[in-house]
Nucleic acid binder design. Structure first.
Lengths: 237, 237
DNA sequence: CTGCTGATCTGGTATAGACCAGGAGTCTGA
DNA sequence: TCAGACTCCTGGTCTATACCAGATCAGCAG
């Protein structure tokens, strides 16, 4: 079916993307301009753009235009290197905004960790950037007994997991991960400045210490084109 | 922006999906029917359907219609349980078709395993089904020296990894995984009977034995709505 | 019973045009 | 100088319609 015009369009657009002169500052020409140049309608052109968006080559910024997507971030959710560390390690510039903190019961987190529904949690919600692009909206819930005084400390500038280790002597031994592609929920989409329903990747983690006591639960929502999950396993069989 | 008509449409369609009478055999009414029922055009209706498709609730079968998507398959790519085993463990019916086998050099696999480009491999390409829906197209390349006679054996009906262990005494100790969302490439899309560019999930693995000798490289392409990756880590810090 | 034909379903692609609403400057008047 | 209004540019949404192409199945001929 490679004879559909919009598919040939994606090929020509891909060429255009690799031409540094064509899109200044990583921004594509306006849809109307492109539609005219390729002698088609905006509808068809947008079909081609959506295709490239699905491939992770371009993304849109609400009513500002289409932009070339940067390389994906390599990310190993099984390691506890801090976000800042591995973003910088890849030559990118990290930034984090804390959106909300509180301490109260969160039944969802409680259920994930196998605790009673009225179990309170230290909750942190934040938004994280790579090179000034918001790519991740996350919420994490820490069992207060494991890390007393967490929210009073400087949880923003240093790796949270590093602090759990060093300040409270926790060893985050047992982890379970769930990961699937999704359409970003309304709230997360808004926080990332994209349309609801934009393709995303959901990562959920539950963490227990060496005595199998529940420590933390967290939910991450990534832009689908922003990351490449990598996992290294050296253990036994 | 919840006032866009197509977004309200998705809500009404979601209700419709949960109504067992509305869609017989998990099949939705025709687009033209739905468009008329909701007093809009096919274009707008299709926008809503695409949204639900992104959420993984429905999927299309080429020119046959839209269907309710089954629950995602839980899949742990770090374990070496066979496909058949964990599909059955979840009460589903697995099936595998071998599309191609050969032995010759494959530079891509060689590079992934750090071998010279002219290194030959035992190559198996297959398509895998869950309840008769093709959800996975995969290729795997095994270093022939590690498993002599592999392609002559019964590699189809039993877990390949199980055989590598039992027949050749290999321990698949060191593994590295890469995983990201993608638009399905033309070939894989065709094998899965979906349109090129359909949302997918790419999983690549490289496997070394306990002496760090390269054993296997494989590439999986999943339908994005077909699986939920889970990983359990009990090991060290 | 078998195999072909063709009508009629389905979604897939495309046109042409319209108006809406947010983003980002510019212009203006205090 | 600076805040606020205005304007223009962008993508976002939607209508109405047309035709194409694969899937399916009834019906017919052998």
């Amino acid at each position: 079916m490679s004879d559909a015009y919009y598919l040939r369009l994606t090929d020509r657009l891909r060429e255009l993307l690799s031409d540094p002169h064509a899109c200044e500052e990583g921004r594509l020409p306006a849809e109307r301009t492109l539609a005219e140049r390729f002698r088609t309608t905006r509808v068809t052109l947008r079909q081609a753009l959506a295709q490239l968006e699905g491939e992770g080559r371009i993304h849109r910024s609400n009513r500002r235009g289409w932009f070339v997507s940067p390389a994906r971030l390599d990310y190993d959710p099984t390691r506890d290197a801090g976000f800042n560390d591995y973003v910088r390690a890849q030559g990118r510039r990290p930034r984090t905004e804390v959106l909300l903190t509180d301490t109260r019961p969160y039944p969802t987190a409680a259920e994930a960790l196998g605790l009673p529904a009225d179990q309170p949690f230290c909750h942190i919600r934040r938004r994280r950037f790579v090179d000034d692009r918001a790519v991740l909206a996350e919420s994490l819930w820490v069992v207060p007994e494991r890390a007393p005084g967490l929210l009073e400390g400087d949880y923003a500038s240093h790796s949270l997991w590093g602090q759990l280790r060093s300040r409270w002597g926790l060893s985050l031994t047992h982890r379970s991960l769930r990961l699937y592609s999704e359409a970003l929920p309304e709230r997360e989409a808004a926080e990332l400045g994209v349309a609801a329903g934009t393709a995303g990747l959901s990562v959920r983690r539950t963490i227990f210490d060496e005595r199998r006591r529940p420590v933390e639960y967290d939910e991450e929502h990534w832009l689908h084109d922003a990351l490449c999950i990598t996992v290294e396993l050296d253990g036994k069989a």
